[in-house]
């Protein structure tokens, strides 16, 4: 069904200039406003940002899980495996959803249907997307549960979601997502609702599965710790825009946008002692009332006259793994120089 991957483009998923707006009484909410990024096969890209920055809408836009209306795609292309998802007929899109692109959500408790056994729910995904004889479906479900290291899968397969802990339910969600061998897994805050010891094990699992299957992961999170654990590349979003983009190592070693710098400085660290936290003053503006020009300028202590104009996402030069470090800030050189002076 799927045509062979276009060899000309190395990227598995390419999002270009995506704008997803929502009509509200107060005008258009520009939840995602000109976002571009790409993910290579087998790689992990993290989209980081706080509530309301547009990271979840970006993820939902890829699978077109946005209710229309009030939502609408104003501009953009989403190329997956050589095809533009935004212009695909419904039945082809349906084959991709849950098939070659799977998604897991933050709340495993509410994403599973409470009245069916988990085995039946995983089997449903397999029956919809794979032509497998009915007699083999149960074995396949067991194989999926084993792949996500569910203990005692023969017993678990006939259990209902309420009989399981949060961590186990998230494993079942992952099993369901993996059941059709996706090329891309979209994980929207996959560990936000679980305890920290369970989170560590889920992150380990995602890493192992990726190493085994060479599946790409689009990780949506607000947690910089989780980003550091999994991501190859990071996109930082603020108010519907990408404001910085780099490899994970580069971004953590050398953050350049004042918002990214602020995020790092405001983090209470468990691994070191710190003085007073550097909070970012104010709060994220509402999506219907983004300021003109740089959307961060009202909270930015570096803001000047030029910030009335929208800053383009510009490359700083080639660094690490041949990826570019890009930042959308008029003042980034000035800030870097000032910070270097403080350190020196």
């Amino acid at each position: 069904m799927t045509p062979p991957a276009a060899t000309a483009s190395p990227a598995l998923l390419e999002v270009d200039n995506l704008r997803t707006y929502f009509a509200t009484d107060a005008g258009d909410a520009k939840a995602v406003d000109g976002v571009s990024f790409s993910i290579g096969a087998g790689k992990t890209l993290a989209v980081v940002g706080e509530s309301g920055c547009g990271k979840t809408v970006t993820a939902l836009s890829i699978l077109q899980l946005i209710p229309q209306p009030p939502g609408r795609f104003v501009t953009g292309t989403i190329r997956f495996d050589g095809r533009d998802l935004l212009r695909l007929p419904k039945h082809e899109l349906r084959a991709i959803r849950g098939g070659s692109i799977a998604m897991i959500f933050q709340e495993p408790g509410t994403s599973l249907n409470p009245v069916f056994t988990v085995g039946r729910q995983i089997a449903e995904a397999i029956r919809l997307h794979r032509k497998l004889p009915a007699s083999q479906v149960r074995d396949e479900v067991l194989r999926c549960l084993k792949a996500v290291q569910v203990s005692d899968p023969e017993r678990r397969i006939d259990q209902y979601p309420h009989e399981m802990s949060g961590g186990m339910k998230q494993r079942v969600m992952i099993a369901m997502a993996l059941s059709c061998n996706p090329k891309l897994l979209i994980a929207d805050e996959p560990t936000t609702a679980v305890d920290v010891t369970i989170q560590a094990r889920i992150l380990d699992l995602l890493r192992d599965i990726q190493a085994d299957r060479g599946m790409a992961i689009l990780l949506i999170t607000h947690d910089l710790g989780v980003v550091a654990e999994l991501a190859d590349e990071v996109v930082v979003m603020y108010a519907g825009k990408v404001i910085e983009r780099a490899t994970a190592e580069e971004l953590f070693a050398n953050p350049r946008h004042p918002y990214t710098l602020g995020l790092f400085a405001s983090l209470p660290r468990v691994d070191q002692k710190q003085g007073r936290l550097q909070a970012i003053e104010g709060s994220v503006p509402a999506a219907t009332r983004f300021p003109e020009g740089c959307r961060f300028r009202e909270r930015c202590r570096w803001a000047g006259a030029e910030c009335q104009q929208e800053p383009p996402l510009v490359a700083l030069g080639k660094v690490g793994l041949g990826q570019e470090h890009q930042v959308a800030c008029w003042k980034h050189a000035e800030i870097a120089a000032a910070n270097a002076a403080i350190v020196a």
Binding site: Q199, A200, L203, F264, R269
Partner: peptide
């Protein structure tokens, strides 16, 4: 178990 914000 806490993820440390340092990819290195």
């Amino acid at each position: 178990a806490i993820p440390v914000p340092d990819p290195k």
